[in-house]
Computed example of a mutant assay.
Amino acid sequence: MPTLLTPWRSVAAGFLLNGILLGTWASRVPAVMAHFHFDKASFGGVLVLLGLGALFSFPIAGRLCDSLGAVRVARMIAIPFLLSIAFVGLAPTIPLLAIALFLFGMCHGSMDVAMNSWASEVEKHMRRSVMSSFHAMWSVGAVLGAASGYVATAFQVPVYIHFLFTAVVTGGTIAPFLLLDWQSTIRTHVKGAAGLAVPNSALLLVGLIALASGLGEGTALDWSAVYLHDVVGTAQSDATLGYTGFSAAMVITRLNADSLVTQLGSATVARLSGLSAVFGILLIVGGDTLPLVVVGFVLMGVGYAAVLPLAFSRAAADCVVPAGKGIASVATFAYGAMTLGPFAVGLLAEATSMRVCFLMVGLFAASIAVLAPVLKQ
Rank of each mutant, 00 (worst) to 15 (best):
M300E: 13
A267R: 00
L211K: 08
H229M: 06
G286F: 08
A225R: 12
L264F: 10
D238V: 14
G218M: 15
V251Q: 06
A305D: 13
A270D: 07
G301H: 08
V261N: 11
G265L: 03
C319W: 05
A315V: 10
G274L: 11
A270C: 03
L241C: 03
R314C: 12
L290D: 11
S313R: 10
T253N: 02
A311F: 12
V261M: 14
V278M: 12
V298M: 11
L215K: 05
L204S: 05
A239P: 13
I284S: 01
I281Y: 08
P291D: 15
A210Y: 12
L264N: 13
Q236R: 12
L211R: 13
A239L: 07
W223M: 08
G245R: 08
A212E: 03
G242I: 06
P291W: 09
L292M: 06
S259Q: 07
L228G: 03
S313F: 09
G274A: 09
Q263W: 03
F312G: 10
A277K: 14
V298P: 04
E217I: 10
V307R: 02
S201H: 05
A248N: 02
S259M: 11
V206R: 04
L204Y: 09
A249D: 02
S247L: 09
V321K: 10
G286K: 07
T219Y: 02
T262C: 14
V307A: 15
G324Y: 03
I284G: 00
L221G: 04
V302E: 00
